[in-house]
Design a protein around this nucleic acid. Structure first.
Lengths: 148, 148
DNA sequence: TATTGTTATACTCTATAACTATA
DNA sequence: TATAGTTATAGAGTATAACAATA
């Protein structure tokens, strides 16, 4: 109180505006993702795992790393996908400790339809021209610290 | 199989790249938010409510609308904030049915520190010049369908 | 000994439905 | 009767700790 020590540094109005826009995008992205998942009776976590499995059989441990959660949580998520016939567990011939989670044929189909219902990709970007999209891409890359 | 009927429309590579960049931003944004909340021993939902309360006393109903969840959930979240002395419930003189959730002095302080630890605002944008930030702002606005 | 996956436990968030007190 | 908030309940995600099988 009455001192500036320890106070949050003020952010300029322009940056603040950009940050708020990004916050809006984040919110909308999540809404759409959860909505698309729900349309297939999946939770967000289940949809995320199913999408990962579309890339091929994956050790439980690796799924946990991708989800940034503890390995013990993945057990339940895959259990629920498995009980609905969307995923299955396989043994890894190379290391008998690991179990590979894999999408079933039904799982791949669901994953594909899920991807199709994520309108976030097409709709908002349709507003921009190719040139503008290129500019946007490069700015986002710089923001994320990815090479030019 | 063998037919295009019902297939997901192909998205052009440039748009796909932008979408993936946005996905990366969304992921990073969430990571940082949860991390910042955890640093203050708050869950994401608790941090979000506390931030809303920084805007002034708010009816429980309105909090549910902002969080896009059922009103019954807000009861527990505010309970937990209240039990830690970060929030309190007040009566609305105008309508005795409504309860106003409000941040305590400690709650406001925590909310302020929380805001300060959200580096996402400053760090990535620092890479861009003022002019670039302006371009980024306008592109994001167009993307979100917000007037020029 | 170290690693992989699982189980057991506890907490939080979530939706649904039923309840109360106001309006 | 309609609305605001709560309670009760059940399911899902999460972290922690302890455990079995394998390396």
């Amino acid at each position: 109180m009455g001192t500036l020590v320890g106070m949050t540094p003020r952010i300029d109005p322009l940056s603040l505006e950009v940050v708020e826009l990004i916050g809006t995008i984040v919110a909308r992205y999540h809404e759409e993702y959860e909505e698309a998942a729900a349309q297939h009776s999946l939770t967000g976590a289940q949809a995320r795992v199913l999408s990962l499995l579309a890339g091929g059989p994956t050790p439980m441990r690796r799924l946990a790393q991708r989800l940034k959660c503890e390995p013990s949580n993945v057990t339940g998520i895959v259990d629920r996908l498995e009980s609905r016939g969307l995923a299955e567990r396989r043994l890894d011939p190379a290391d008998r400790r690991v179990k590979l989670a894999a999408a079933t044929e039904a799982g791949r189909a669901t994953s594909e339809r899920l991807r199709g219902s994520l309108d976030f990709a097409r709709e908002p970007l349709a507003e921009l021209s190719d040139e503008e999209r290129t500019i946007l891409r490069d700015l986002l890359k710089r923001m994320l610290g990815i090479a030019p």
